[in-house]
Amino acid sequence: MKNSKMTLSAETMNLDFVKKVEKLSDSSVRRCFQCGKCSAGCPMRTFMEHPPNRIVRLLQLGQYERVLAGRSIWYCASCETCSTRCPNKVDLAAIMDALRKCSWDAQGHSKESLVQLANRLFLDNIRTYGRQYEMRLAAAFNLHSGKLLKDFMLGPKLLTKGKLKMFHQKNKNLAEIEKIFRRIEELRKKGEAP
């Protein structure tokens, strides 16, 4: 897909998608004049098939499938360098968030499923315990990814250093947090939140 020929027509351009991304991110893609500064400073550009400036260009051209199909959005580290340096105030880090949300909602089979898995387990952890417990997160990740990452966070070594907690206190705000998750789901069901 990366090198396939791009034909611009009403069929291949999805401008509604672009509007949605602009709204979610509170940022315009039209302001970009392709100076490339974002990509020059991006620490993850070597891992991406589309560097940040090309992501914006593809969005300007309504090519959302190309953007979502690749791994680029899942390799963005949210370091905010691009947003800080853009001369046109394109908030690319927020656009990356918006694109990930679109991909996440579409639940398309992502090539970057491990990143998605880590995100999902992290959020599940918050809903269940109110806080992150690295031990549980690591254990769940190993279980679900089917890979026993033997070195993950050097589990045993951290345990002997007293750095990983096996037990934890119950958070008094668990009911409140469940309520937040539920009410967000409600809003979405009613179509009142993205």
Binding site: D97, A118, L123, N171, K172, F181, I184, A193
Partner: peptide
């Protein structure tokens, strides 16, 4: 009884959360 701020995973995929 503070709660997790959601860190990167929350804003990565769910800004409202």
């Amino acid at each position: 009884d503070w709660l997790c701020c959601g860190a990167t995973p929350a804003h990565n995929v769910d800004e409202l959360l």
